[in-house]
């Protein structure tokens, strides 16, 4: 009887003018995979050093950012929610092997069908940013106290930490700390959309591969980069610094991986 009902629903959908772009009442899994890069090189914390601008070198300890309201856009135009919030955290990517695997987030019960894009907010969406770590159970992406500014009632959307060798002498003596979060007069949340044709099939897992280029975040060009000789930290109090980081993370750094 249940099988017959399922059959009739399928026919009903087809009879009502549905197209092959419509999502169907079957479900698969979607895996969102982020691989980190620094330019053409895999992004590896602590173990790897990278050439930087103006004769400087750089090494990273931490790169993380929140993504919110993650949706797939079906070819029919319908939005399907993958997740409410994730922390894309490269802190434990400390080898090239780990870098090649990247960071994965899996979502089940995703309607089968054809999708054309993914959209997500970079940062913590307004509704979620009104809450605090104490509001969430252990393990939730927003439960970690270290990613929250209690004095400002805001999550820290993005963190970049590491060390710079300012003159190429091999000594990474300059510590780098860039923490970007919303302040009352500094709205920083923005939604991005990336085109990608993704087919989700019943009981199958489909991978949506993304790349994040940290070089694009802090050094989009040789004339426009964070000059660590001038600035080595920011906590969303120098507009030229946090604007560069936020704009480039949102507009240039995240791409569909080919």
């Amino acid at each position: 009887m249940i099988a017959l009902l399922g059959l009739s629903l399928t026919f009903f959908s087809a009879d009502c003018g549905g197209s092959e772009d419509d999502l169907v009442d079957e479900f698969g899994e979607v895996e969102l995979n982020f691989q980190g890069f620094f330019g053409a090189d895999p992004l590896v914390m602590l173990a790897n050093e990278y050439d930087y601008e103006a004769g400087m070198d750089v090494r990273f300890q931490l790169f993380q950012f929140y993504v919110s309201e993650i949706n797939l856009i079906a070819k029919s135009g319908e939005k399907v929610r993958l997740g409410e919030i994730e922390l894309v955290n490269f802190e434990n990517i400390q080898s090239e092997d780990a870098a090649s695997k990247g960071l994965s987030f899996s979502y089940s019960n995703i309607p089968a069908g054809e999708y054309r894009a993914i959209e997500m907010g970079i940062g913590v969406s307004g509704d979620l940013n009104e809450k605090a770590p104490a509001d969430y159970p252990v393990g939730h992406p927003l439960a970690f106290q270290g990613n929250y500014w209690s004095g400002l009632s805001s999550y820290i959307f993005t963190k970049i930490e590491g060390n710079a060798d300012l003159n190429g002498d091999g000594d990474f003596t300059e510590k780098l700390t860039f923490h970007i979060g919303e302040k009352e007069d500094v709205p920083l949340y923005q939604t991005i959309s990336l085109d990608y044709e993704l087919s989700v099939s019943k009981d199958q897992s489909s991978v949506l591969p993304l790349s994040v280029d940290l070089k694009q975040v802090i050094s989009p060009s040789s004339t426009n980069f964070l000059d660590f000789r001038e600035v080595s930290q920011d906590h969303t109090n120098q507009a030229s610094v946090y604007t560069l980081i936020v704009d480039n993370l949102q507009k240039n750094a995240i791409r569909v991986r080919q």
């Binding site: 770590p133 104490a134 970690f144 106290q145 270290g146 929250y148 500014w149 209690s150």
Partner: peptide, 9 residues
């Protein structure tokens, strides 16, 4: 930071 005065890291 925070109410626990640690991030437990």
């Amino acid at each position: 930071g925070g109410q626990h005065l640690t991030d437990f890291s």
